[in-house]
């Protein structure tokens, strides 16, 4: 009898605990937060630790070497080029992305026939898995059977017998990598822009019309300022997706020819996994951290600003 009463009490207490907002919230959030701390926070700290040791693949441990890895990486011309390429690829491709995506999103807001199909085709590069679709580009930029070159030859734009080697020439390869980066991020930016355009209230449109704002004028004074916040979000994401992506470079050029298209990410991979120098590889990848911190701060500031308005 007494035990029944006691267990009833515990059950009631448990029930009350589950009804407490604070307790329930903590219980529901804790697993996800713990998981993230262990699998993101942990490795991030380990990366910082490894970067200060001479750890190599295949063995445990490594001697403390201070900032040697960072200094060695900095002195390496390949690293310098990887750093320069990371910035180059990101800036150029994102400039192309903003321009094209702005145009596309604006055109897509109009109610036209066949919009679903057009949108589907435009979204494809973002919706298809990048590790697979980039192989398609490998074929498009093939040294002998490049379809780009075939068309260019027919139009007499390039040398018939010595057409451009898109992936074999150091300068052209930079362009090839940039084109694929821009190609896959454009649809993402379009998606975000569409969300931004959809959030502009129709009253604003009407007011603009009454005030006689049309065409370019309306775009400049009404649409653009209202679009700016969401365009910033698209840009910040585009920067992160491009600067930290290894897939495109690895599949298209493997960083070649002669390491001319390495990015920080691919250089970290070749140093840390292929070369086995975990410590130095970790140091190379950590050079990305300042960029990511800047993006995160901007993102935070921005999220707060939007929340207030």
């Amino acid at each position: 009898m007494a035990t029944v009463a006691a267990s009833g009490r515990t059950r009631r207490r448990r029930r009350n605990l589950l009804e407490s907002r604070r307790f329930l919230a903590t219980a529901l959030i804790a697993p996800a937060v713990l998981f993230i701390l262990v699998l993101v926070g942990g490795p991030l700290l380990l990366a910082m630790y490894l970067s200060l040791t001479d750890a190599v693949g295949g063995t445990l441990g490594g001697e403390w070497v201070g900032f040697d890895n960072f200094l060695n990486a900095w002195r390496d011309p390949n690293f310098r080029r990887a750093l320069r390429n990371t910035l180059l690829f990101t800036i150029v491709s994102q400039a192309i992305v903003l321009l094209c995506a702005g145009l596309i999103a604006h055109a897509l807001t109009r109610p036209i026939r066949g919009k679903w199909l057009l949108r589907f085709l435009i979204i494809l590069p973002w919706a298809a898995p990048v590790p697979l679709s980039t192989i398609g580009w490998l074929w498009i930029y093939d040294s002998l059977f490049s379809v780009v070159n075939w068309v260019a030859k027919q139009l007499h734009l390039v040398d018939q017998f010595n057409p451009p080697q898109w992936l074999g020439d150091p300068t052209l390869a930079l362009g090839a990598v940039i084109s694929v980066h821009a190609w896959r991020i454009i649809p993402f930016a379009v998606v975000i822009f569409l969300a931004g355009l959809a959030s502009i209230p129709s009253e604003v449109e009407d007011a603009a019309k009454v005030d006689g704002a049309v065409g370019l004028k309306k775009f400049w004074y009404v649409t653009l300022p209202l679009q700016l916040p969401i365009a910033t979000v698209a840009l910040l994401f585009g920067i992160v997706f491009t600067a930290t992506d290894m897939t495109v470079v690895y599949i298209l050029t493997q960083g070649g020819p002669f390491n001319s298209t390495q990015m920080l990410t691919s250089w970290a991979f070749f140093t840390g996994i292929r070369g086995g120098s975990l410590g130095e590889g970790a140091a190379v990848s950590l050079y990305l951290l300042p960029l990511l911190v800047v993006v995160a701060v901007l993102m935070l500031r921005f999220a707060r600003k939007v929340e207030v308005t």
Partner: peptide, 15 residues
């Protein structure tokens, strides 16, 4: 944390 890319994590995780 979604912005912390695999690039920073794959070396320690593979370790």
């Amino acid at each position: 944390t979604y912005l912390v890319p695999p690039t920073l994590l794959f070396l320690p995780l593979s370790y």
